[in-house]
């Protein structure tokens, strides 16, 4: 029979209860950065939908909400849309980090959780 582990201390660990941390002296900067990041996402959703509408009108001559939801781009179109999205995020947020040497996603995860 195993001893019951003593775990009273876990409630005192930061992270056990969810908080609302801010990272700048003035939390308003946190709020503004958050608003900008989320607005970027909502703007991209609109641009993606616009691209699909234009594509459907050009290829099918009509568009319905159902057609948009079911839309599966060809590999070529998918690659174009992915590239457009990456350019969009880079153009909007370029001022923050672009001058630095980039770490690729695979290298980032290998550094943290081991190689696969």
């Amino acid at each position: 029979m195993l001893d019951e582990p003593k775990l009273d201390y876990v409630r005192e660990l930061p992270g056990f209860e969810r908080g609302h941390p801010h990272y700048f002296k003035d939390p308003m900067i946190d709020h503004l950065l958050e608003i900008v990041m989320l607005l970027g996402g909502e703007l991209w959703v609109t641009r993606d939908r616009q691209m699909i509408v234009e594509h459907l009108l050009a290829t099918e001559g009509k568009v319905t909400p159902d057609m948009i939801e079911r839309f599966q781009p060809s590999p070529e179109l998918r690659a174009q849309m992915d590239e457009s999205r990456k350019l969009f995020t880079q153009r909007v947020f370029n001022c923050l980090y672009s001058q630095h040497e980039a770490t690729q996603p695979r290298a980032f995860f290998e550094a943290h959780v081991g190689k696969s």
């Binding site: 959703v45 995020t89 630095h100 770490t103 980032f108």
Partner: peptide, 23 residues
């Protein structure tokens, strides 16, 4: 579709704002 598109944007943003400048 909108949810999936939003998530693609979040994924790119993580790569661009978190992974790339990590070092």
């Amino acid at each position: 579709r909108a949810d999936e598109t939003f998530m693609d944007y979040i994924s790119d943003m993580r790569n661009f704002l978190m992974h790339a400048p990590y070092k």
